[in-house]
Design a protein around this nucleic acid. Structure first.
Lengths: 153, 153
DNA sequence: TGATTGATTGATACTAAATCTCAATACTTT
DNA sequence: AAAGTATTGAGATTTAGTATCAATCAATCA
């Protein structure tokens, strides 16, 4: 497994995304540092406008355009995932490349891998009963991760 | 079961939503008829702006405000569901009140119920392995329903 | 070190989705 | 027919997200 669960801390995500930027030939500029810092410190899933409000208005460290650009890149590279949302704005959570099913911790904002095979097993009989030809799916689970339950509250 | 699968045709959805409007004390006006007709005839999940383009621009039957109002009401009442979407616009599919897990047919646009218990069975062991406290979830399956596979193609 | 080169930034303009407003209109009831 | 209420819709407004492009910055090379 490329990313063992124990490594999936915000601090590790912060280090890995900076390395990923460099590996992609992108520069680790001050505005990008500020954005990565903010995301790594986010205590829950967040919207682009929350980042804008925190960095553009309050500190003047990163402009709206820079923030949207980096969020898009991080999502395309698999370091962020867009969550289902009832509202108008996209909601993001920290993520790790290569994962597809997620359990989003509403306390620390991390999105950790779910074992895909178990889920497919559960879905298969229901699909068969419907004679439904599956072409794609979205599964998102929300709650509190084991780490948060252990270390706080 | 309140809505057996065999009843979940677009035509039945059309009749039931009109009845639901009346039951709620709302009037079945000409603009609302046109909107319900369009949704019942929709061949796939759709956006609010698609309805606007079809009814406002082409025929002048319903204004943007009326369309958004009815879509909101239908969703709140359980007759539409918003789908996960990568894009900016909300995407809707016909739905039936009281259901939570959906299999969306990309050909006829219907969203039919999935057996909840089977899915939960599949998820539970994976959650236990993560020590994850589940508070909510989104599951959406996309494909082609048995009815569409039988009758067309 | 200083110049060069190309990536990056950010102020601003723009587009598009969705909401809000309120006078005009259309039902419904009496 | 009149009164009262729900509904409509044109247009203004808000907001998210995108596009532009001159100015700036960072990395490399001489």
């Amino acid at each position: 497994m490329a990313h063992p669960e124990s490594d999936q801390t915000p601090a590790h995500w912060r280090r890995r995304t900076e390395a990923a930027l460099r590996d992609a030939g992108l520069r680790c500029t001050f505005p990008r540092h500020a954005i990565l810092d903010w995301i790594a410190a986010a205590a829950a899933p967040f919207t682009a406008e929350q980042v804008v409000a925190a960095l553009e208005t309050q500190h003047g460290t990163s402009s709206r355009a820079t923030i949207y650009r980096l969020l898009d890149w991080l999502q395309a590279a698999g370091w962020l995932t867009r969550l289902y949302s009832d509202g108008t704005q996209h909601t993001y959570a920290r993520f790790w490349p290569g994962h597809h099913h997620i359990a989003v911790c509403l306390r620390c904002g991390s999105a950790t891998i779910m074992s895909e095979c178990h889920i497919e097993e559960g879905i298969r009989p229901a699909l068969a009963a419907l004679d439904f030809e599956l072409q794609g799916h979205v599964l998102e689970l929300y709650g509190v991760c084991g780490n948060c339950r252990t270390h706080s509250n």
